[in-house]
Every structure is written in structure tokens, then in C-alpha cells.
Design a protein around this nucleic acid. Sequence first.
DNA 1: TTGTCATATTGACGCATTGACAATATTCGA
DNA 2: TCGAATATTGTCAATGCGTCAATATGACAA
Lengths: 245, 245
Amino acid sequence: MGMDKLARKKRELLQREGLFLDIARRLLLKEGYHGLTMARVAQAAEYSKGTIYQHFSCKEEVILTLVTRSLERRLAMLEKAAAFRANPRERIVALGEAMELFVRLYPDDLRLIFLSNTEAITQKASEQFVWNMRRCAHRSFGLVTGIVRDGIARGDLTLPVSATPEHIAFGLRALTDGAYAITMSWIPPREVGIAQPIEAAKDICQILCDGYGWRPLSTEWDYNATRRRVWDEVFPGEVKKIASN
Amino acid sequence: MGMDKLARKKRELLQREGLFLDIARRLLLKEGYHGLTMARVAQAAEYSKGTIYQHFSCKEEVILTLVTRSLERRLAMLEKAAAFRANPRERIVALGEAMELFVRLYPDDLRLIFLSNTEAITQKASEQFVWNMRRCAHRSFGLVTGIVRDGIARGDLTLPVSATPEHIAFGLRALTDGAYAITMSWIPPREVGIAQPIEAAKDICQILCDGYGWRPLSTEWDYNATRRRVWDEVFPGEVKKIASN
DNA sequence: TTGTCATATTGACGCATTGACAATATTCGA
DNA sequence: TCGAATATTGTCAATGCGTCAATATGACAA
């Protein structure tokens, strides 16, 4: 087969995989894990079930592919935020804004990411997928630890003897993930007295940084101005998209 | 039917339900969601499948019953800790110790609690179960907000204008839940540089409290002594059990 | 253009599981 | 001891996953 034909073939395969994934995503989000069935995907895509199994070895792999896409989309936004040119604590603020914009723009992707914590799904995951998901986790953690190291290097932050940069990253991440987990769980945050869980999570991250004595403290700096700068300079398109809704 | 006979009947039913639940729990923990099947429970219990459906309307209800038990067990430990006679910040420490002891003593129960965040399971939950799980969440949140209010009442803590007692409770809870979620997920905390995630979570909760300026700050008080007091006075049996492993 | 072969696609099938239910067994009061 | 109420059983339809032998497609050579 000619090279060009082979390339076309490959492109078509990729396109078909995209079709399967789009349908699967729609079903999964709309009707949950049990609502996503291979037969329904096949029917909606107007292919036979067997063809899907040429792309994915099992139902779980379909889901994990969706999860991986969402993880990478989020990671891309976090990386953009981490590259914000400002002092380290402002860059932490930028990460918080990235998280918030991500969840506002793509709430469905966040749902998918949380789905990946389900054992029923990860049980059947191939090495390939686990490896890739870990890679995403590493990189997003790495962004935070990197900023913490910068803060230490600049003398903005002095670690307690028992702590490491990883500890702080772990704390910020646990706080954020936990807040989102509560938001998306069967515990409605309003019922426990929190009207705006996402804003609350950002504020608490700030207070945690203050707790470490990371300068400039939130009392010494106008971090709302920082937020506006992040919107303007890093995520103008995203902010516009949200505003237009 | 005589009253005594009726009572015996009821007792036997309850006992059988316990048998089913024990078997289901073993299967679920050992082989995951897909490994737990009604037929296997029936076979192991030496009853027929139909009998199980007299106790539980579906597989998900079996799982939710297990989850509810675990939530209640944890809540009981938290309530014991919250009743610790000490200043409010020490009582927060006591809650942290309760969480740690719980996860050390009953790691399987924590796994079950996290299982309840799975949509595949909660989808089919009856009102009854959701209602009960929310009740647990309310009560455990209430313990924290109660302690925060005590701190404010004593003048140990002055809230920022934008915060409420619920905010602080939300932060502490999100931090703890998030840390445990990371611990139990496919992200191995060691790989992101955290050797002891549970200890780290406790430390970070302290730093967050410091960030709020909640007195006595961790620099002003020996909270390790507080921990030892909690072990001795609130959880002597639990600590002993852990030590003997 | 046509024949041949490799590859892609199909849908029926085997197997497992859920949940329902009619048939059967047991229990209890009279 | 009898009969009604209740509990238990095992089978069965329905559904879904993943496989595979049969079939269709299409690239290339003659």
C-alpha cells in the first residue's frame, strides 16, 4: 500500500476512534456507568460492536481513555498558569484560578477525572493507562513543588524543619481535590454551610500559604489584582467564554 | 404469633442479614465491585439468591449498607474525640487522631467509604440511604463547626470577615479527605514525595489553623503532648490494638 | 479489467449476571 | 392435625460483555 494511502487510513481510524469516544462520553455523562454500553455506542456510531473492540480492549479502557483526555486538558491549563510571570505566591494563585476556570468551563471533565478514582474501573486498567495517568499526576504535582522551590530560593518562604516542598504541594493539592470531591459527592456543600465551595477552596489555600509564612502574605499584597492579571494575561479566551454564558 | 416468637424471628433475620453482609464485604474488598455477585454471596451463605433479595433490593443496596456501617463506625470515633476535655484547638487535634486511628485500625472501612463516591453505586441508592449518609456527613461536619464556634466564643480565634465557622470546618475536612483520597488513589503518595501522607495531613491541618491565627498556635503549645493525652484518655483500647500489631 | 490475497468488519454466540416469579417448603395459630 | 400465611427456592427472561468464524472490502499485480 502506498504511503499516502496508509496515512489516510490511519487518519480515518483516528477519526472513527474520536467518534466512538464522543458517543461514549455523552452516554457516560448522561446515563452513568451502567448507561454506557458497547452495543449502544456501536449503534449510535453505526458500526458493529466488534469494530469497537479493534480500538479498545474493554469497556473500562474506553472510560480510561476519556479520563486521560480530561486529565491532559486540565494539565495543559495548569501548565499555562504555572508559567505566569510573577512572584511564586502569585503563581500559586494562578494555579488556583486555572483550577476554577477548568471546573467552570469543563465541569464534565472534572466528573470524568473523579470517575477514575473508582476501583471498578481502574481494576481492569492496562499498565499503559495507569502509567500515563501517573505521569499526569507527577507533572501537575511537579508544577506546585517547582513554584514552592522558587519561593524558597527567593527567600519568600522558610520551611519548618519537618516539612519539604512536596509537603506543601501535597497540602494544597489535597485541599483543592478534597474540596472538589465534597462538591461533587452526595454531600451538598450548601447543606454544610458553604455556598461557594470553589471560592472557599481558593481562600483556604491562601490561608494555608499564610500559615507557612509564605511572603507576601495575603495581608501584604492585593491578590485580587493578581487574579485579574491572570485572567487578562493567561486565560483571556477562557474568561471570555465563561462571561458569555 | 406470640411476641417472643416474633422477636426470635426478627433476631434470626437480622443475624442472616449480618451473614450476607459479612460475605459481601469480604468479596467486595478482596475482588472489587465486579467480584461481588449475588450468586457468590448466596452460595457462600448457603442460601438461594432469591432470599438475599428479601433483604436487599439490589446489589447496590448491599454495598450502601456496608458503606453506611463504616460511616457510622467512623462517626462514633469522631464523636468520642470531639468530647475530649481540652481547649478547642486540642479538640481539633483529637479529631485528627481519631481519623488516623480509624484508618489504621479499619483501613477496609475507609476503602468502603470512598467507594460511596462512585456514581455507579449511588445512582441506584434509595432515598433512605442517601438520607442516612447525609445525616452522617452533617453530624461529622457539625462536630468540627461546633469546636470552631467554641474557639471563637473563648476568644482563641477571630474569623476573617469573609469566613464563617463552616468555612474552617470545610477546609479542615477537605484537606483531610483529599489527603486520604490521594493516598487511596492510583497516585502513590511516595511517588510525589510524601512518605507518610497521614501524618502530613495532620501537620498541615495544624498549619492551616495557625494560618487562621487560632490560639494557642502550634509554636505556643506542645500538641504532641496533646496527642499522647488523646491516646491515653480517649482511645486507650484502640492504641493498644494498634500497638499489638 | 479481473483475479488474488491480506485485512477489516460483522453479527451471532457463549458466558455471566441481575432481578423476577411461580412453584414448593415451612411455620404458626386454631 | 389442618389450613393459611409466610419464607425459600431454583429457574428463567433479559441484558451486557467480549470472541470468533464467516463475510466483505479494497489494494495490487498480471
